[in-house]
Design a protein around this nucleic acid. Sequence first.
RNA 1: GCUAGGGUAGGGUAGCUGGACAUCCUAUAGGACUGUGGAUCCUUUGACCCGGGUUCGAGUCCCGGCCCUGGCCCCA
Length: 407
Amino acid sequence: MIQRPRGTRDFFPDELEERRGVEETLRRAVSQWGYREVATPEFEHLELFTIRSGEGIIGEMYAFQDKGGRDLSLRPELTAPVLRMYVNEAKVLNRPVRWYYFGDCFRYERPQKGRYRQFWQFGIELIGADTAQADAEVIAVGSDLLTSAGVTFELRVGHLSMMKSLIADLEPDTQKKVMACLDKRDYGALQTVLPEGDLAERLTALIESRNLDDAFAITGSIPEEARIRETFALLDAHEVPYTQYFGIARGLDYYTGCVFEAFAENLGAENQIMGGGAYRLAHLFGGEDTPSCGFAIGFDRVMVSRGDQGVPRPLTVALVVTPEGRLAGIGAAAAFRRAGVRTLADLTGKSLSAQLSYAAKHADYAVVIGGREAESGMVTLRDLGSGDQETVSVEEAVLRVVSGGSC
RNA sequence: GCUAGGGUAGGGUAGCUGGACAUCCUAUAGGACUGUGGAUCCUUUGACCCGGGUUCGAGUCCCGGCCCUGGCCCCA
């Protein structure tokens, strides 16, 4: 027997319907902010991803050569492809551009709770606006999406300039190490990287601070102060719940300012459910240096965090026929479907008893058509909840089912 | 890459101090019910992850692999 590849999943109808429902909710919510969907290829030139994230990530990618010897990779994320698309084809668009995406990505990693080798990301990119309003809108959209998806989460918002202002005098290599320690809140490692002076203490105090005045007291005045204060004021106006968190580093060099992350409950070690910030990537792909801001939501983690909530079955009718009623049944079924009712036809030719047994498990009403009904042009509508039934015309049966009445 | 636990019908399980046709629930198919369902009863279908090894004999013990569930690392 052939097994699924490691880290992949099959989805049965119950689970898939639930996923589609959440997906629909997210699409509706993001659409109300004016974001429109874009789609990019499942695979890209390998270089697209290494430019953004470095050669080190090749080991975690599904990279391969095609028959023409091109180095390609299944996409491990969607920000780079979307920005590539923007640079390639959308230079003439009015800015700002508001785009969203929903698609599967692939990473060769050890699977664990909320982490798979094929996973789905839902995200937005706001391209070409470099203001506090832009940063605040992106964060507000993220908060809105997670809330509408039914997730309970903690949103942390920070700004890289505050940490960077404190470590600006260090060697670039040391800066990286320091930021990695702070991102993980690994104070022990921080002591070994920064053995002397009070810098470690000031950094620690900065990332422990939970309001702007305390934070700026540590950093002193920095050029970005006004914008940072404005961003938080706008977030308050958006009524977005958040905590200030100046320890967020997000690991990558191209983040320029505002950064944010959300963490959700019911997840294990992998509890980050959204991450994003302001960045400059377009110039790496050959475009103009364009300010952008965006985030990605881990869709699978949204589903894990929500838990099994289930999706109610849509109103369903099952057609139960004898051989004499089969032809009349086709027309009756069509009438129900035209009225928007899911209608199951019998395909087995089994006894009425067996057909009803099946119908009882999968439908709300049974429409029985045997020899008597076929002859009179009527149908017997049976309410499978109450067991009541009545013989009526097809039109009357449709009307009763649609109106939700009993027989 | 490291690490803990696990893998027995479609789903959930017992057996795991080696020994006869591998247990039970559920599901599936059919029947009791010649035009009326989810209950009940009967019958049916259906499994020891794969490969080696130890042994007279392996679901059971040993080794390797694959996969699952967590944790570490990483996290674009």
